[in-house]
Simulated assay, not measured.
Amino acid sequence: MFAGLDFGTSNCSIGIINNDNEPVLVPLEDGETRLSSCIFLEHGVIKPEVVSEYELSKRVRAEKASQSQRINSGDKSSNQRVLSDDELVNIVRKQLRKENREDAKTSQKSQSVMEALQSNSEVIFGKEAELAHMSDPEKWFLY
């Protein structure tokens, strides 16, 4: 008898040559010929974005200076109205939050498996792991 084992990164299967000299997949679990070998673990959780008051005021000052420079230079191409301090603070705060979220996502994606294992206890295997991954692929490592 000849047998072949496919130990893949997400599925495993075993094939044999039967007595009729035909290739056949062997049932492994619950009659299935494919056994999921997926391991999923959750990335670290992205915490709410904290906006540094220092960074906020620094950026608002820079925006005010830029706005003043456009006005003083007589730049007619901008056709923008002068924004109030409150409007500038809101705009800059939104920009900082967006940047913080993007930085957190980038950091999360570069997180190693060991870091993820140390930071959380949820590790899911097999079919359950596949379902978890399909529900939220960005949230999980796939191995």
Rank of each mutant, 00 (worst) to 15 (best):
P27K: 07
E87H: 02
I16F: 09
E22T: 10
Q69G: 05
G44W: 04
F40L: 12
R81D: 12
P48K: 08
V89R: 07
Y54C: 01
C38Q: 08
L41M: 11
P48C: 02
E55S: 14
V45G: 02
E29P: 00
S78Q: 10
K76H: 03
R34E: 11
E87F: 06
G74Y: 05
N19R: 11
C38P: 00
E87R: 07
E42V: 02
E55F: 12
I17P: 05
V50N: 12
L25R: 09
E22A: 10
F40E: 05
N21I: 10
S73P: 01
R59N: 08
I71G: 06
E29Q: 13
I16W: 00
S84K: 04
I71P: 00
C38I: 10
L83D: 04
H43T: 01
P27T: 00
D20I: 00
V26Y: 13
V45W: 03
Y54K: 15
I71H: 10
Y54I: 14
S68M: 11
S68H: 10
P27Y: 07
I16N: 00
V24C: 03
D85L: 04
S36T: 09
Q69C: 07
E32A: 14
R34C: 08
E32C: 11
R61Y: 01
G74C: 06
A65E: 12
A65H: 09
K76L: 09
N19T: 07
R61H: 06
N72S: 13
R81C: 04
G74F: 06
V51E: 06
A65C: 00
S36F: 00
R70I: 10
Q80L: 14
E63Q: 14
P23I: 15
L35T: 01
P48A: 06
V89K: 03
D30Q: 14
K64H: 05
E42I: 01
S66I: 03
A62L: 14
